[in-house]
Amino acid sequence: MSSQVLQLAGVNRTYGAGATAVAALRNVNLTIHAGEFVAVMGPSGSGKSSLLTLSGGLDKATSGEVFVEGTPLSGLSINELARLRRRAVGYVFQDFNLVPTLTAVENVALPRELDGIPARKARRQAMDALRLVDIEQLADRFMDQMSGGQQQRVAIARAIVGQRRLILADEPTGALDSNTGDSILEVLRGRAEAGAAVVLVTHEARHAGWADRVVFLRDGRIVDEAAAQHDPAVLLTGLAH
C-alpha cells in the first residue's frame, strides 16, 4: 500500500462543556493513503464536517491525534499550521470560495504567492494546475464570466496547486446540476488516480459511488465502511463491446 497522507488516531472533538457539551466526533480512527478516494457519508449532525475541518487543521481535536503526511497537527503552532495548510492541504467547498476580483489563474496562484513563491513561478504552477483540470483556456476570466462547473474546476485547481497531496472536498457538487457534478467527480477521481488522497464529504450516495471507500458516520462514530469490490462478473458483458 502506498504512503499514508491522512491519519486520524482516536480522535474526539467535543464542543462546549459540562451539561451542554456536544460530542461531534468520538474515537474516530481513519487512515487514508496516497491515491485513495474516500467518501464520508452520514446524516446531518453526524460529524462529517467536523472530520473534514480537523483533517485540514482548521480545528483542533479535543483528544487523539491528526497526522497529515506524518506530521502530528497538535504540536504545531498557529503559523506552522497555516503553512502546512497552504502547502499540503487543498479545500474544495460547495460554494467555491473564490475571490471574485481575481481571474482564474490569480485565484489558483494566490496560495502559492502567500507561501512566498515569486509571482511568475506561482502563475506557472497555477497554469499547470488549471491544465490538470482542463480549464487552462479560461485562465484570464473572472468568476462572473464562468459557469458553476468551471468555477468548481478553478477551486479544484487551487486545491491541488503546488503538488498538494490531500484534497478535502465538502459537498463540492452541491450547487451544480447532475452532469456538471459528475464531471467534477471525474476530475477529483482523476486527481486520486494521479496520487492525491481525496476525502469527499457528501450526502449523495451516487457521488459516494465514485469513491474507493465509503465511510459511514453516525453520532460522531464511524459505524461502517464499504470498500469497492472488484467483481468482474457483474455486468461484464456490457463492457465487451
Binding site: A205, A211, E225, A226, A228, D231, L235
Partner: peptide, 11 residues
C-alpha cells in the same frame, strides 16, 4: 453498505 458497494461497481 451493500447498496453503496453496488453503486461503486456500477459507477
Amino acid at each position: 453498505t451493500a447498496s453503496i458497494r453496488q453503486l461503486q461497481d456500477y459507477t
